[in-house]
Design a protein around this nucleic acid. Structure first.
Lengths: 157, 157
DNA sequence: CTCGATTAGTCAGCTAGCTTACTATTCGAC
DNA sequence: GTCGAATAGTAAGCTAGCTGACTAATCGAG
């Protein structure tokens, strides 16, 4: 009984409910995109992006090289490169080349970067909708990450 | 110089395990990206992308206008526009303008599009890692989508 | 010392989201 | 009939992932 209709009779019921039959991976992608979209609105009020937020978090602990940042954030080198370019342009991080290895750039957070991080750090939690069994949900996400990331980031376990 | 460190204080524990403390939203984004990455490898062997796969799925039922496709896929109009451009270039869909409303383009799947969909439809399920309580996990995702999408797609409930 | 392999980072080019701004068509009020 | 509002779609320009190809610096084997 699929009352999913064609062009002229496009009814309201055609919109929502079918999503319950979507494959899990597609739900995952959709949920992720929508959540990101929600805090993007907040973040760019303070000059940040989602990708930059992750980097600022990682730099709170200590300065790091770009390769380290990429590995910790689970993205590729080139992606970090551009994210840092933006953060630097905004004055949130500094890059200086490592005197002991001139291939490396040591990235550190600036005072302005620390300020903006302090404004943003709670957002990341506040903007996340609540779910019924948060621990089960988080475990599932961690399991997915572990199994999917195995081929790319395993070597440093 | 064997250490991976910048200022010799960065310990090994800084690498992997810390992810367990990541905010849930960031885990969601990371998991989503990694899963997408996994099947991207498979999909482009048959000339498809993740975005195209969703569209082909939606078109299996019946031809639709671009605005309908965008709404059903939970993306904006412009995004669908380019996705369709690619699918058309590959010969997987056709666009004809609606004779009864020449602003509209009716999008329909071609035989080649149906073929490629049949090759790909199982991938979407097979590539998804298993989780402990799939039903809880799916419910959580649906809840997140519902709450996040409210402002953008609610009007047609 | 030299030369090849490895490592850090960048550049170009692709898809996929998004926003803002635009054209073309249709509809509706007058 | 005309003119303004609403709708369908496109275009440009942004961030963010990715791959593949490149430079520069370091390491290491001979």
């Amino acid at each position: 009984m699929s009352d999913e209709s064609v062009n002229e009779a496009s009814n309201a019921s055609a919109v929502g409910p079918n999503m319950q039959e979507w494959p899990t991976g597609r739900l995952l992608a959709t949920a992720s995109r929508l959540v990101e979209h929600a805090w993007t609105e907040r973040l760019d009020q303070i000059g940040l992006t989602h990708a930059g937020l992750v980097v600022l978090h990682l730099l709170q602990e200590s300065p790091r090289s770009q390769t380290d940042l990429a590995r910790l954030a689970r993205v590729e080198n080139q992606t970090i490169s551009r994210t840092l370019e933006r953060l630097q342009r905004e004055g949130f991080v500094e890059r200086v080349s490592d005197p002991s290895d001139r291939r490396r750039h040591i990235v550190s957070v600036t005072p302005a970067g620390t300020d903006v991080w302090n404004s943003a750090r709670t957002l990341e939690r506040d903007m996340m909708p609540e779910v019924d069994e948060p621990e089960v949900f988080r475990s599932a996400l961690l399991a997915i990450i572990a199994s999917s990331a195995a081929k790319r980031w395993e070597p440093e376990a």
